[in-house]
Design a protein around this nucleic acid. Structure first.
Ligand code: ZN
Ligand code: ZN
Ligand code: ZN
Ligand code: ZN
Lengths: 153, 153
DNA sequence: AATGAAATGTTATAACATTGCATTTTATGC
DNA sequence: GCATAAAATGCAATGTTATAACATTTCATT
């Protein structure tokens, strides 16, 4: 994300936190900024390292977990559970709500692209499981493969 | 899985290993049997505990990882990466090959049901990602929710 | 300034996974 | 049968991801 877009995103998040009565503390903000500069998924410990590099300040993994927890609850960040990494929600700059995000995770470069399930996909999925009586809760799909950039290298 | 079906599955796996020139050692077989008795996903360490309880013999986590690795390579076992658990492939008793398995994982009881994507689902998924240039590799979908049994409790 | 709630720090530990090397088991050629 | 090599397993150490328990700091409210 470009510097300008990052500033804009941060501004919007600030507003949003104010609306919700939440505190976007310096460290929470720093972590979010840090994540906004990356299109890649980051592990908790990646963030710890990156935080030190960027802000010349140590932060403990425990704190990072807690701050990620905060950001996830507020739907600003997603956890990619298949590889224990975290990304900023692609909808952070818009009010757009999710229905069924698809995470396209590159096994080569770790980039994660978040797109929305469109057309008949949600219905097709539902149709596939309705006979089992299973009730879907987490509707995000984590898809692993090779991104366009890596494919063309 | 019933005792009879388990014996049958084991018999088939034995044959299959012979065909492929693989050794289904006692411990590998024990682990597979152990997993066949469960519809739940098991973690590596669950298997360590269960192995001790069933066979009165200690086995190290490292060994379990290796044996799971063997079973996964041979497509007899799946890893559910979103919760680090392992299940026997539902197709173990048939020659049926996968195209796109759906793992329906109960967040309450941990049961995993493996069903095959049917009808327009694979095509719908492909249609959703084709414009991104992303090339899907691992086509399994891990879906979290509540199973029928837990829903009705 | 006193108070209390939220955030953050600190330490320990749980849970999941891999590496490297030693030993045992098994298959194979002589 | 026996030597040899390869495969499987054991074992110790370490790495990675995550949470629990408790202490301290920060900050708004009174
Ligand atoms: Zn999102
Ligand atoms: Zn890539
Ligand atoms: Zn399967
Ligand atoms: Zn259940």
């Amino acid at each position: 994300m470009s510097n300008k877009n990052r500033q804009q995103a941060l501004q919007l998040v600030k507003q949003l936190c104010q609306q919700r009565g939440l505190k976007l503390t310096t460290k929470r903000s720093n972590i979010l900024q840090l994540m906004l500069t990356e299109k890649k998924g980051l592990s908790t410990y990646d963030i710890v390292d990156s935080y030190l590099a960027q802000y010349h300040q140590k932060i403990s993994p425990v704190s990072v977990y807690r701050m990620l927890g905060f950001l996830i609850v507020e739907k600003l960040v997603h956890k990619i559970s298949s590889n224990s990494q975290y990304i900023v929600c692609s909808h952070i700059t818009c009010s757009h709500s999710h229905q069924m995000p698809l995470f396209l995770i590159c096994n080569n470069c770790n980039q994660v692209e978040e797109v929305d399930a469109a057309n008949e996909l949600p219905a097709a999925l539902e149709k596939n499981i309705v006979s089992t009586g299973f009730q879907l809760q987490n509707k995000a799909l984590e898809l692993h493969g090779i991104c366009q950039i890596c494919k063309n290298i």
